[in-house]
Amino acid sequence: MTWKKTKIFKIQEIWPILPAALYLLGFLIIVLLYLLGLSFSNTARGVFPTLETYAEVFGMPEFREALLNTLVFVIIGTPLELFVGLFLALLLYKSFVLRNFIRSLVLIPLAIPALVTAIILFILFDFPGGHVNHLLLGKYDAVPQIIQAPVNWRGAKIFSLGISLLGKVWRDMPISMLIILSGLNSIDPELFDAARTMGAGLRQQLRRIILPLIIPSMSAVVLLRSIEMWKEFIFPFVLAGQHNLLGTLIESFYNNWGYADKAAVVALVLVGCIVCTSLLLILAAELNKRIVQG
């Protein structure tokens, strides 16, 4: 009805929004001010403003290693999350017996605190004992021996970051799945009937209907998951003590070495990476749209 258009609204009526707005804005300002302030100072020498800390951090091999590690983490982890999400979503898309039950089940990883997931992996990949080592050493009857000596999973760089990634992907599966599933569910089922009457098989339906139509949800997954990958902290913190990502480097600068200024620099680099990635991805999606539309 027409009257809905003119809901009487006066500025003095919306004051209840102010506490929340001030709270969030206040913290946003504090966070940005402190981050910038710290990064442009050298707390050890009490100098401000200066670019010294930036120069120092950029020169540190720990920083370069952490940046590279994180980059690899993002580049491997993001597509992995996308494929796992896509796989699960397609699995759950068609209705079947126990669908709701399995759907609830798939949400379980999300309901387990990340710290706990990390600890499960911590126990599983223990050295020299632990399920995984025993499994690969062929101690269980059903599995042949694959390795000769137990592996120190949490010590080796590639393994420790690998397990962290495994944990991260496992825990976040439901999120990617839900986003893609909501994309799938918004497809009009009549499209499939129409395609079938035109003689399209399952594979063709998947390629010609499902994939093109869920590209928006897949883009959303890629964008959000890549940001989450950059941000990752808990898994490497618990599982990869000696090999840093940017997140754990911040922690180690701040808590172990007491460098608030250096931590702030790394934090800003992290934020910068996230912003750049997002812009790149949004740009790519935009370009893709243009090209597709002609």
């Binding site: 710290l38 950059w230 997140g247 911040i250 702030a264 934090a267 992290l270």
Partner: peptide, 10 residues
């Protein structure tokens, strides 16, 4: 916004 980045200033 990463928690690990905002936690330092907070």
């Amino acid at each position: 916004f990463p928690d690990i980045a905002s936690v330092i200033p907070v």
